[in-house]
Amino acid sequence: MQADENPFLKSFKDPAAISNYQSGPPRFTPGFADLHRMVTILLAERVPDDGRILVLGAGGGLELRAMAESQPDWTFVGVDPALPMLELARDTLGDAAARVDFIEGYIDAAPEEVFDGAVCLLTLHFLDRQERLRTIKEIHKRLKPGAPFVAAHSSFPQAPDVRDKWLSRYEAFAVASGVDPEMAGQARDAVSRSVELLTPEQDEQILKSAGFSNVEQFYRAFTWCGWVASA
Rank of each mutant, 00 (worst) to 15 (best):
P157A: 00
P181K: 08
V150S: 02
K141N: 08
E182S: 11
A151D: 10
L143V: 04
E138K: 15
F156K: 01
R134S: 13
L207D: 06
V175N: 02
P200C: 03
P145M: 03
R163C: 00
E131F: 00
P148N: 01
E204D: 03
G178A: 04
A159T: 13
V191M: 12
A147N: 07
V195D: 12
E131A: 12
R134L: 13
P200S: 00
F126G: 01
E171H: 14
A184D: 08
M183R: 15
Q186Y: 09
H140I: 04
K144S: 14
F156Q: 00
S154A: 14
V175P: 08
R163Y: 13
G146Q: 07
D128W: 11
E216W: 05
A210L: 11
Y170R: 00
V179Y: 03
L124I: 14
S155Y: 02
K165T: 15
G146Y: 04
F212V: 06
N214P: 00
L127K: 11
A187C: 12
T135I: 12
S154H: 05
Q202I: 07
R169M: 15
F173E: 11
P160Q: 01
E182R: 14
L127I: 07
K141S: 12
R188F: 11
G146F: 07
S177E: 13
S213V: 11
P145Y: 00
L197M: 12
R142V: 10
G211N: 04
H153S: 11
Q205F: 06
A151T: 15
G178F: 09
A184V: 07
G211H: 03
A190S: 15
L121Q: 14
D161M: 11
K141D: 11
V195K: 03
K208N: 03
P160M: 04
K144T: 08
F149S: 01
S155R: 06
A184W: 12
S192N: 15
H153P: 00
L124Q: 06
A172C: 02
S154G: 10
P200T: 03
M183S: 13
V162L: 04
P160T: 07
